[in-house]
Design a protein around this nucleic acid. Structure first.
Lengths: 113, 113
DNA sequence: TCAGTATATTCGAGAATTCGCATATTCTTA
DNA sequence: TAAGAATATGCGAATTCTCGAATATACTGA
């Protein structure tokens, strides 16, 4: 496995490693959106959103095109959403495991003291 | 979509956002490995590897158990590898697109000047 | 108990990330 | 061309990440 591939993966993971950027990608599931939409919907500073969009642009995760006064963003490859979906699955599995571990602890306590 | 879930995803992506940690997870595809294996195989400082392992442990991506003198690591949930595999697919798709874009540019040049 | 092996932690420095604020840039419309 | 709307960029401060060096901890075997 070449290290350049690992480097690529690491950079992509890094780009996804912020809840605001994940929120942006979630919003884009609806389709294309103008840049302003993000600050409106997420209630964050315009400049801040623009910075996060710049990160996603730099990694080519989103593409932007100008339409008159505004800039329209969209996700370059829907595969990105699969990543987020896989993470959701992972989350639920982890939560599930924690629950059963708790249950077992409770049972052990009943039997115990 | 609750923000706690986005936060969870972001933290997990953050944990994956380093080529050394990706290399660790790739090595663990073979099965359990002792901590020392990583510094041997990757040719990095023992302390450095231990720090990266600590990151993966903190996010419960790997589990560690002591076996006498050494510590044996394994991946907690194979789903993690699916994430890496998905990233590989993403990489190849991107590369493919870049190639076709280059080809189109070349054709355009032939027709052009 | 002591020396040695395997692994983890702490610390400090340098780099990178994130944010708010101010300012630039790009485009439209009067 | 000037004002205004939409978006991006530059800057400085606070925080976080990463690394190497040194040190600590856990275990084994003599």
């Amino acid at each position: 496995m070449p290290d350049s591939l690992r480097q690529f993966k690491a950079e992509l993971f890094q780009a996804l490693a912020h809840s605001t950027r994940i929120a942006i990608l979630d919003l884009l599931r609806e389709g294309e959106l103008t840049a302003g939409t993000f600050s409106d919907r997420l209630g964050l500073e315009q400049a801040n959103l623009s910075q996060h969009l710049a990160v996603l642009r730099a990694r080519q995760i989103v593409t932007a095109r100008r339409a008159g006064n505004q800039v329209i963003y969209s996700v370059r490859d829907p595969l990105i959403w699969k990543m987020l979906d896989l993470m959701r699955r992972y989350f639920h599995k982890q939560v599930g495991e924690s629950m059963t571990m708790l249950e077992q602890l409770e049972k052990a306590e009943e039997r115990g003291s």
